[in-house]
Design a protein around this nucleic acid. Structure first.
Lengths: 393, 393
DNA sequence: GCTATTTAATTCGTATCCCGTCAAAAATAT
DNA sequence: ATATTTTTGACGGGATACGAATTAAATAGC
């Protein structure tokens, strides 16, 4: 019970950035007494800081000035990472989720043996931590966001384009490797939380995010919590079945996945090289501007498929807002227009107007930051969840 | 806090049917002391009853015999109803959800003006209440389950095949009409809760139910709670988009809805008559047995579409169990087989084995009982939610 | 410059609630 | 009748939250 209130207060402070006790009490519906008690304990634990200046009410404020409270950035450090097929992005973040250092490694990791991948990730984590002027033992937790179907609770990767194998116990492997608690999460879930904390869903506790990258991912926020399937399973939109074709089931990924849009490019060509470097979509955009008809029609086909799938998601979840993110958005007009058209055609009239569509081209760093948020959210709850007994002097 | 524990204890008693305090304490993880306090207050409020006999442990039980506690059936009465296009089914249920009386009215209500429909419903409610030897003012709450997209919180019906109009404030209308709090809920949600309380999901707090009737509905249970969209919106599977056809969007309902399967039957014919009476699917089954090829292929088409949609639902929600209900199941082999085939083809390998498929041919009464459960669940929480202060003497 | 006013935060006392321990009650076995 | 076993109820301790009163720190007015 106290744990719940503690978390609520802490979260209220985080959302506000800087806030006085009175206002916490207003927002949480807790009495000022309780807020005082809780904030005292939070101050005591070093999780928040008090700042005497900064009372930003109307300039001529009478009465005792408010003492502003904010998160103590140094209360914890976490590493968040986005692991994609052709790049890895790491960030070190402080307790507020603010990024302290970034590291991008442009290298192809998919289809590599697992221990090569874990090696590379370990390397990236270590380098990024050093860049932030920290040591690994100052890091409280690490979270890796990767594409695919991931069981968050167990850290079990059911399937991912990153791995050749299915069913990897990735969290366990990496935890042992790094000597730091490591969480594995779907990349879509990570960017969903990033938007909830810092992006275009700060004001909402219910929303849906669709990520259009190599893999098509989904994040559903419900009451401020990620909605996970059984066993904390993440969703994979690319697996959605669209119909039966000559070679069996046609899935969304086969029309709207990155490789489906860009097609098989001749090895060594400039396009193939751009794809290698994660610039495939940007390159495609310039080709589309030059009226490359193959690409244009691929983009339109992908947009239509996405738009329809999106409408179905909205039919099922009816969120007030859907945020679309991912590299495919860089394709520009033909893709976006056909997506929007298909969406508005496919959305049932009865829920028209319920959902607002928002497009966002986040940087890779935001994804990694989202992974850091996943790690932070777990920290927020667990280690100080139990009320510490007053230490005997 | 007490409210939460109270609810948990009450719910534990309901689930068990009859249970001793010790066992409540075991199941809820509450101390026997607390359980005693709470049960005393529940007994005091007349919500539960104590029965001295009925200790069903090993016959030769030494020690003080257990006092079994069970819900007081008379603590409340509710009316639940299933309103379909061609029939209305009412039940009066006691506090346990047990049915006291049933009333089925086989009449076509769709496309009637609203006040005709409300008239008929009012009539049905009143008659069913009388059948249970009760008066309307002894009814605590009414819940109507209808097909379509319904906002549970507001009782607003966004669209329903029952109504000619969209956007009807049905809960308000009926509450005024009956003088009893009336809740409106999607029929799929009702049957979902019916299965949670009495049917094939008693053991699960997470599951998905798909209802295949005139309308294709969906109920998602998540942590024992119905998962609703924004504003308590219900889902409508029939609105799912499958692809673009010559006449615009092809939706699931146009392939697998009742009318899509049965087709347009000549007015006055035996088939049309059967449909009128809600026996359309049964009649179709006999025709299929007689190798009516039009129907067989319609059934197969419908089954395929449903199977694929089902696989997509499972991809998104990954529930441990999916329950399929509804009149279309009566079609038998061709429908069920093609559904199963399409499902196993469309289900992504990465989540194969997560979900168990269960078919259930519930009676209409069960649907109405589910609506009663919706009403009861609200009663369980609200009126005794606050701890009553000890009355002065 | 002093006092009154206003607003913020803390302290204190009270009520609630849960749990652990212990005693009472109710049956059976000897 | 007595001992044993099991369940139930009662009392005190600990934690928590809230309301009222108190203290704190600033401004406004004279």
């Amino acid at each position: 019970m106290r744990a719940i209130n503690r978390f609520n207060v802490l979260d209220t402070i985080r959302r506000a950035g800087s806030i006085a006790r009175v206002e916490i009490s207003e927002r949480t519906q807790l009495s000022t007494t309780t807020v005082s008690a809780i904030t005292a304990s939070l101050l005591d634990d070093g999780l928040i800081l008090a700042r005497t200046e900064g009372d930003l009410r109307e300039a001529a404020a009478r009465g005792r000035p408010r003492v502003m409270l904010e998160l103590n950035p140094d209360a914890a450090r976490v590493v968040g990472a986005k692991i994609a097929a052709n790049r890895m992005v790491f960030v070190v973040a402080d307790f507020r989720g603010e990024v302290l250092s970034t590291l991008t490694l442009a290298l192809r990791v998919d289809r590599q043996p697992i221990n090569v991948i874990t090696d590379l990730i370990e390397d990236g984590v270590r380098r990024c931590v050093v860049d932030a002027d920290l040591a690994l033992d100052e890091i409280d937790s690490v979270c890796l966001g990767l594409p695919g179907v991931i069981e968050h609770r167990t850290g079990h990767v059911r399937s991912s384009p990153i791995f050749r194998e299915n069913g990897v116990d990735f969290a366990k492997d990496m935890s042992e490797r790094l000597g730091v608690t490591t969480i594995v999460e779907s990349d879509a879930h990570a960017i969903t939380l990033a938007h909830h904390w810092f992006g275009k869903a700060k004001d909402l506790d219910d929303m849906v995010l669709v990520s259009l990258e190599q893999t098509l991912g989904l994040g559903v926020l419900h009451g401020g919590q990620l909605f996970r399937g059984a066993g904390g399973l993440s969703h994979n939109l690319g697996d959605l079945a669209l119909g039966i074709g000559p070679q069996g089931m046609i899935r969304l990924a086969s029309l709207a996945g990155e490789s489906a849009i860009l097609g098989d490019q001749p090895n060594g060509g400039r396009f193939a090289e751009a794809i290698r470097l994660g610039r495939g979509m940007a390159h495609a955009k310039t080709l589309i501007a030059a009226e490359d008809n193959t690409l244009i029609s691929a983009a339109i086909r992908a947009g239509e498929a996405c738009g329809m799938a999106l409408a179905n998601i909205v039919t099922l979840f009816a969120p007030p807002r859907v945020i679309l993110v991912g590299s495919s958005l860089a394709l520009g007009q033909p893709f976006l227009d056909s997506l929007r058209d298909a969406y508005s055609l496919a959305i049932p009239p009865s829920i028209k107007g319920v959902t607002e569509l928002v497009f966002d081209q986040s940087t890779d760093e935001t994804w990694a930051q989202g992974a850091a948020v996943v790690a932070l959210r777990e920290l927020y709850e667990s280690p100080w969840g139990t009320t510490g007994p007053a230490p005997a002097l």
